[in-house]
Computed example of a mutant assay.
Amino acid sequence: MGFTGQCRCGQVAIDIEAQQLPPLYACHCLNCQRWSGSAFGLHLLCGAAAVRVTGEVVTYMHEHQGQTSTQSLCGVCHTRLFNETTAAPGMRVVRAGVLDGAQAWVPVAHIWTRRRQPWVVLPQGVAQWEETPTAEAFGKALFG
C-alpha cells in the first residue's frame, strides 16, 4: 500500500510506502501558520526511508529552539513538501496537503494549541498540548 502526492506544479512527486496512513497531526505554532499561510499545518510523521521523492527539490535550513530543521520544497513552484529535523532523527515530516486523499484524514493530535486561532475548535478526546510535547507523550499519541 502506498500514498502518493505532488507539489502544486507537478514537477515533484512523493510516494510514501506504508501499510497504513502514517499518523496525522496539526501544529498551530506561529511558524506553521506562516509557512502554510493558514491557521495551522497538517503533518504526517514518516520514517525517512518510506518517503520517496522524484523531481528537483531545494532546501532551506533554519534553527528553532536549539533544533535544526531542513525544509524541502519544489524547485519550481516552491511548494513545501516535507522537512527533517534534528528533534526526530530518521523521520520526515510530510505536509499532508500535498498528498492525494488528504481531505479524508483527521488529525490524531494537536500541538502548540496556545497559538491556535480563536475560531478553531478542537475535538474532545484528541491529544493536544499547549506547546511541544515530550517525545514520549507525542509518540504515544501518534503511534499508540
Rank of each mutant, 00 (worst) to 15 (best):
V76K: 12
E56W: 00
T4S: 15
M91V: 09
W105C: 04
Q20D: 12
H110S: 03
C46K: 02
T113W: 07
V53E: 01
G90K: 08
C46W: 01
H78T: 04
H78R: 14
T79H: 02
R92A: 06
C74G: 01
H43N: 15
P22F: 00
R8H: 14
E130P: 00
T132S: 14
P107S: 12
A109D: 13
C32E: 06
Q33D: 06
F40G: 01
V53F: 08
H78C: 02
G41D: 08
G55P: 00
V94G: 02
M91W: 10
P133N: 13
T86E: 11
K140H: 10
Q67W: 12
T113A: 08
P22L: 02
A26R: 00
C9I: 08
T70G: 00
V121N: 05
A13N: 12
T59A: 02
A137P: 00
G144T: 04
M61N: 09
E56Q: 15
R52W: 00
F3E: 03
W119P: 09
W129V: 08
V106W: 04
H62E: 10
R116K: 15
Q117F: 11
T59E: 07
Q11S: 13
L142K: 03
A88Q: 14
G90M: 06
V106K: 12
G90R: 08
G125M: 11
L122V: 11
